[in-house]
C-alpha cells in the first residue's frame, strides 16, 4: 500500500470507531478489565515469588550431631560443612543454646524442661545458612550424608507448601488470564465485525474496482489495534494505581510482607501489557475479517 492508501485508511479506522461508539466502548472496557485482572494476578504472583524466595533464603539448615560423637570430632565436622559449596554462614549450637532458642514458643526454659521431666532431649547441632535459596536442599542433602550428623532439618515441608501454593496460584492465574484474553479477543472481533457489516457494500465495491486485500484489511486492523492500545493503557494505569495503594497499605500494616517497588516493575509490565493488548486487538480484527479477505 502506498502513502496515498494510508491517507485513506487511517481516517476510515477512526471514523468507524466513532460511529460504532458503544461497541467501541464495550470492546475497550473488556480489554481494559481483562488486562487489569491479568495484571493484578501477575503482580501478585511476582510478589509471592519474591516473598517465597526471601523466605527460603532465610531458611536455617540445622544439622544435628549424633550423640555418640565425641566433642573432639566436632571441629572436623564443622570444617567439612564449611567446605560445602553455597554455605554462607555456619554456627555451632550447643544443646543448651538450642533449648533456649525454642523455649520462648513454650514459655520459659524451666517450664519446658519441667514438661519434659527435667531432661533436655535436644542434641548439639550446627546451624547453616545458604548463599541462595536454590542451594538449600543441596546443602541439606550433603550434610545428611556426613558422618557424625544424625539428622538434617530445614523446614522443607513449609517451603514446599509455599511453593506448591505459588505454583497453584500461577496455574490458576494463567487459566483465568487465558479465559479473559479469549473474551477480549471475541469482543474485539464482534466490534470489528459490526464495522465490517456496516461497510459490507463498500468492501464489495472496493474489491470489484481493484483494491488490494491490505487496503481493505488495514482500517479494521488499525481499529482493533487502537482498541487494544487504549484498553491496555487503561488497564496498566488502573493496575499500578491499585498496586501503589496496596504497597502503601502493606508497608504500614503488613510490614512482614515484602512488596517489590512499582518503579522496578512498571516499565516491563506496562510494555508487555500494551503489547498483549495490541495483539489481542489485532487478532480480534483479523478473525472477524478472515472471510472477507479473498478478492
Amino acid at each position: 500500500m502506498n502513502r496515498h492508501g494510508f491517507s485513506y485508511v487511517v481516517p476510515q479506522a477512526f471514523s468507524s470507531l466513532r460511529i460504532n461508539g458503544w461497541m467501541t466502548f464495550a470492546a475497550i472496557a473488556t480489554i481494559a478489565i481483562s488486562l487489569f485482572l491479568c495484571l493484578l494476578f501477575w503482580l501478585m504472583v511476582i510478589n509471592i515469588d519474591a516473598n517465597a524466595e526471601q523466605l527460603e533464603s532465610n531458611v536455617e539448615i540445622i544439622g544435628y550431631i549424633a550423640d555418640e560423637i565425641p566433642q573432639e570430632q566436632y571441629n572436623a565436622i564443622q570444617s567439612k560443612i564449611a567446605a560445602l559449596s553455597g554455605v554462607s554462614s555456619l554456627t555451632y549450637i550447643s544443646r543448651e543454646e538450642g533449648l533456649q532458642r525454642i523455649a520462648p514458643r513454650f514459655g520459659t526454659v524451666e517450664q519446658l524442661l519441667d514438661s519434659m521431666g527435667g531432661v533436655n532431649p535436644l542434641p548439639n547441632s550446627f546451624s547453616v545458612k545458604a548463599q541462595s535459596p536454590e542451594a538449600v536442599s543441596g546443602i541439606a542433602g550433603q550434610m545428611a550424608a556426613l558422618e557424625g550428623i544424625s539428622e538434617v532439618r530445614y523446614g522443607e515441608s513449609e517451603v514446599e507448601k509455599l511453593f506448591a501454593f505459588t505454583s497453584a496460584l500461577r496455574f490458576a492465574g494463567i487459566v483465568i488470564m487465558a479465559l479473559l484474553a479469549v473474551a477480549a479477543v471475541f469482543l474485539v472481533a464482534m466490534t470489528t465485525r459490526i464495522s465490517v457489516y456496516a461497510r459490507k457494500q463498500e468492501i464489495m465495491v472496493m474489491k470489484w474496482v481493484g483494491a488490494t486485500n491490505w487496503f481493505i484489511r488495514c482500517p479494521f486492523l488499525l481499529e482493533g489495534i487502537v482498541l487494544g492500545l487504549v484498553g491496555s493503557l487503561l488497564a496498566v494505569g488502573a493496575a499500578f494505581f491499585v498496586y501503589y495503594k496496596a504497597s502503601a497499605y502493606v508497608a504500614c500494616s503488613l510490614s512482614f510482607i515484602v512488596m517489590l517497588p512499582a518503579s522496578a516493575l512498571w516499565l516491563t509490565v506496562s510494555l508487555i501489557a500494551v503489547g498483549v493488548g495490541v495483539l489481542m486487538g489485532a487478532i480480534g480484527s483479523i478473525v472477524s475479517l478472515a472471510r472477507f479477505l479473498n478478492v
Binding site: G5, Y8, M204, V205, M206
Partner: peptide, 24 residues
C-alpha cells in the same frame, strides 16, 4: 446500481480511485 446510497455522488465515484490509491 450497488451504490453507497447515503454517500454523495462524488464519494461514490471517488471510491474507485481511492481503492486504487490514487492521490487526493
Amino acid at each position: 446500481f450497488r451504490l453507497l446510497e447515503k454517500n454523495s455522488v462524488f464519494d461514490n465515484v471517488a471510491i474507485t480511485l481511492k481503492a486504487t490509491e490514487v492521490p487526493k
